[in-house]
């Protein structure tokens, strides 16, 4: 107790260092316990699905499973394409040109998940001849864009590519 200041400083340093190092250790221990719940490497590896589209008639659509989620592949008729392209961006809650949502106007490929709370919308339903989500009444047009209802954004377009005329690779 003769030199309280000096003694105090050194003690503080060791205690502070111990607490800091201990906190780092706890943090480093917790991370693996959190990260283990992220997608594992076998899940991440299942990135892509190839779909044969040669059998799809104009106006029809198929639903395929990709990463556990439904993907709508719709072969649109000329009227549907015209309808989608003619809409003014000002009328859209989430303005996106139809051209930006497709690689080939005849084919619309999108995640069939309502952007409101994740239900799967019904096709050829709703006020805009596109999709209608039965959960909370969101209406989508022939480009999968939100037109009416609680959903905040258009339906999402996944990464995809035309491998050849008859095959689409999603992912």
């Amino acid at each position: 107790m003769d030199k309280p200041e000096k003694k105090g400083n050194r003690r503080d340093f060791i205690f502070t260092a111990s607490y800091t190092v201990g906190a780092i250790g706890i943090g480093a221990t917790i991370w693996p316990l959190i990260d283990q719940m992220n997608p594992d490497s076998s899940v991440k590896a299942l990135a892509s699905t190839e779909v044969d589209i040669s059998q799809i008639e104009p106006g029809k659509s198929v639903t395929v499973l990709w990463r556990g989620k439904p993907v709508f592949i719709k072969r649109r008729t000329q009227e549907e394409i015209a309808e989608a392209q003619s809409v003014s961006l000002d009328d859209l809650p989430h303005p996106e040109k139809d051209q930006d949502r497709v690689k080939n106007p005849e084919w619309l490929v999108m995640l069939g998940i309502c952007t409101h709370l994740g239900c799967v919308p019904l096709s050829d339903k709703g006020e805009y001849n596109g999709w209608f989500c039965p959960c909370h009444g969101s209406h989508y047009d022939t480009s999968g864009r939100i037109r009416k209802g609680p959903a905040p954004t258009n339906m999402e377009i996944p990464k995809y590519a035309f491998v050849d005329d008859n095959t689409i690779k999603i992912g």
Binding site: I14, F15, S18, V21, G22, I24, G25
Partner: peptide
């Protein structure tokens, strides 16, 4: 890490 930490804890 454990060696450093145990040294600090030892001093504490």
């Amino acid at each position: 890490f454990l060696t450093i930490f145990s040294l600090l804890v030892y001093l504490s």
